[in-house]
Design a protein around this nucleic acid. Structure first.
Lengths: 333, 333
DNA sequence: CTGTTAGCGCATTCAT
DNA sequence: ATGAATGCGCTAACAG
């Protein structure tokens, strides 16, 4: 029972004294990469136990033996897609014996900046960035700065679920083709008037929606019908209601969450899914299963894992497959 | 454009040289807690910019100026309840200017042990622990060891959503009384035969279910009817099916997730909610809103925040209120 | 106001 | 096989 006073951590020195050896010897048995007499080693190990010694990472790091740390920066951990990616990152980091830092920005640029500064100070070996972005010049400039800043500190930046920017590597998923496939699915069920629900009401779209919209249009062979909506259930509800007098036989919601809102809107108007209107989403969250929603599966956990591998050990498949998951929200026309 | 080679971080020394001052001066303008001539300060700031200097936390920590770091240890970040608690922890940590470490154990005791060891090495100022547990002697012994180990390193352990153990502080929520209230709600709607769905099929229950069950029984005034089930949707489905020939007018699922499974089971048997059977859950997750589930709201984010405050700045309300959220899954008998 | 210096805890030559 | 000494980057006395 150590029970020492607060703040009085045991140091290597004390262990050495206790074991009647030098600090170098203790350090050696700890590292285990250098010959130490069996008997001495035993004695040292006893002392370590007895004193409940715990190494100080900071001192270690300073002396050049830092454990790698990978940081995962996301807008909001409450979003299921991100939480799943985080799970993948955690797992892979653990496999690599790396410490894992999960940081949220709440979509606030200031906070994001602070987080990055902090990560540089922490000497993070890698930082993985996830979350939708508008791929414009400003973004490119920003991300390039970040990457350079990190590189200065011998740290790598990896994008997750976004296109690579400049020479910044990324793990993507087949977003456009997933959208294409599920639109095809709708089409092959006889649907023609398919409403795409998602995207900004004005201004440029994030790469996420832009790609999904592109896939939708490629399958359709024409611009189709688009109703803007944020990536929330509430917005899905509101925006579909706004469109509801119109006639379409199916709705492609940009996200499962949006689909959930759309579904509620449909129900509120006395329309049934899929009897009256077919509905598909994107992401394949828990929600999709609950609602029997046909959707596109995005391998978020795999993306997290892949991003860590890319960051820590170099090359890696950089665009993961998506697949449509058929459930019960689509009916043939 | 710094663009230095990887690994070649800029040090205080270099900044000092560049600015033609001593390291002490640079350190001072950095800390800003000591008078420095305006002109000198300016010169130093220029150099810092020019060299893109970033302080090394490890060196700082070794020198005694460590930023506090609070760790949040949970079984699985994909679980919404935990993700919400994590959000609260993140926010509060940021407010305190503390670094936030989120670590998952996957419910694996070995991994949990490794995580704790790592946290001690990191000199975490506080570690917050969440996740169901069976409150037996073994657990008590374990947690006490952990707490002592942490205390050795001048670090505090705080429990979250569990009862305090020994002198280890905790942030709880009114679990039993929430269960009592929602059972009352059912009762005042005329229900008498209410099935409690949750808990282990054999062996001791976690404190979480035990308390909910206790509240249920207190409201009922007798032991009631209990069908065991894990905290998963799947289990809710299976276990309710197993019980379905029996007649009860309402089901109290130990968790929203379990309720979702129960609901599916009911539907699969041609029973409608709430017309044929009323259903309530616990937690008030996103799912509950989607399903129109009447449930008990647990303030997970607040708990996370409170835990951080407790850990970092002492006293704090330690048991948070719960409340029943009435939606559409209960019908009067 | 500014420079010099002594640690912080540990890993690592270099001696022995 | 073991011990003594050096340095990692920074802060905080301590001198000027």
């Amino acid at each position: 029972m150590p029970g020492r006073q607060g703040g009085n951590r045991v140091t290597l020195r004390e262990v050495a004294d206790h074991a009647q050896v030098s600090v170098a010897t203790v350090s050696r048995v700890l590292a285990g990469n250098y010959p130490v007499a069996a008997e001495t080693r035993h004695r040292v190990e006893q002392s370590i136990q007895a004193l409940d010694y715990v190494a100080n990472v900071h001192a270690r790091a300073l002396a050049g033996v830092a454990p790698r740390t990978v940081a995962f920066v996301l807008p909001d951990i409450r979003a299921q897609a991100f939480a799943h990616a985080a799970q993948g990152v955690e797992e892979a980091a653990a496999e690599h014996g790396a410490l894992c830092l999960i940081c949220t920005t709440q979509g606030d640029p200031e906070r994001e900046h602070a987080v990055f500064q902090m990560l540089r100070e922490q000497r993070a070996s890698a930082v993985i960035l996830i979350g939708g972005v508008v791929d414009d010049a400003e973004y490119r400039a920003n991300i390039t700065d970040l990457s350079r800043g990190l590189a200065t500190a011998d740290s790598r930046l990896v994008l997750c679920g976004r296109p690579p920017a400049g020479d910044i590597p990324a793990i993507e998923y087949a977003n456009e083709s997933g959208a294409y496939s599920i639109t095809q699915h709708l089409i092959s069920s006889g649907h023609r008037r398919i409403l795409f629900l998602g995207g900004p009401s004005s201004g440029p779209a994030t790469t996420t929606v832009a790609d999904r919209l592109a896939g939708y249009r490629r399958a359709l062979g024409h611009p189709g019908w688009v109703q803007p909506a944020d990536f929330t259930r509430e917005s899905g509800y509101q925006q579909l209601c706004a469109r509801l007098p119109e006639d379409f036989t199916a709705v492609f919601a940009a996200t499962d969450l949006v689909a959930a809102g759309a579904r509620a809107a449909l129900h509120a108007h006395g329309l049934r899914v899929p009897e009256d209107v077919s509905l598909v989403g994107y992401d394949d969250l828990e929600l999709a299963e609950e609602l029997g929603l046909t959707t596109v599966r995005v391998p978020y956990e795999d993306m997290g894992r892949a991003a860590v591998r890319l960051a820590l050990s170099g090359r890696e498949h950089s665009v993961l497959e998506t697949s449509v998951v058929v459930r019960t929200s689509v009916a043939p026309l």
